Amino acid sequence: MMKLLCAEARKVTAEADARLLARYVTTLAFGIAVQAASGVGREELQEMADAALRSWPLP
């Protein structure tokens, strides 16, 4: 797996695929929006967002 983020600077590395990262974040946001529109509560939506952040590709 390529190194996507520089932990010290909290910035995307030069090797990262910016388009892929943008699609990843957009997909997560749209998925959470669909869940919200379907009536999922704030607490469960927050749990989904937290899970997504835990899987974020860190070095």
Rank of each mutant, 00 (worst) to 15 (best):
R19L: 10
R19V: 08
R19Y: 05
R19E: 15
L20R: 10
L21T: 06
L21N: 02
A22D: 15
A22P: 00
A22Y: 10
A22Q: 14
R23S: 09
Y24L: 10
V25D: 03
V25R: 06
V25N: 02
V25T: 12
T26D: 10
T26L: 13
T26G: 01
T27W: 02
T27I: 01
T27M: 01
A29H: 03
A29W: 04
F30I: 14
F30R: 15
F30G: 00
F30C: 07
G31L: 07
G31R: 11
I32Q: 07
A33E: 14
A33F: 02
A33S: 12
A33W: 00
A33V: 03
A33G: 02
A33I: 07
V34N: 09
V34S: 04
V34A: 06
Q35R: 14
Q35T: 02
Q35L: 15
A36V: 06
A36L: 06
A37N: 12
A37T: 08
S38V: 00
S38L: 13
S38M: 09
S38I: 00
V40M: 12
V40P: 01
V40L: 10
G41F: 01
G41L: 01
R42L: 08
R42Q: 08
E43K: 14
E44P: 00
E44G: 00
L45D: 06
L45W: 09
L45V: 06
Q46H: 07
Q46L: 10
Q46S: 08
E47T: 14
A49F: 04
D50P: 00
A51Q: 12
A51V: 08
L53Y: 04
L53A: 13
L53D: 03
R54D: 14
R54G: 02
R54W: 09
S55T: 10
P57H: 04
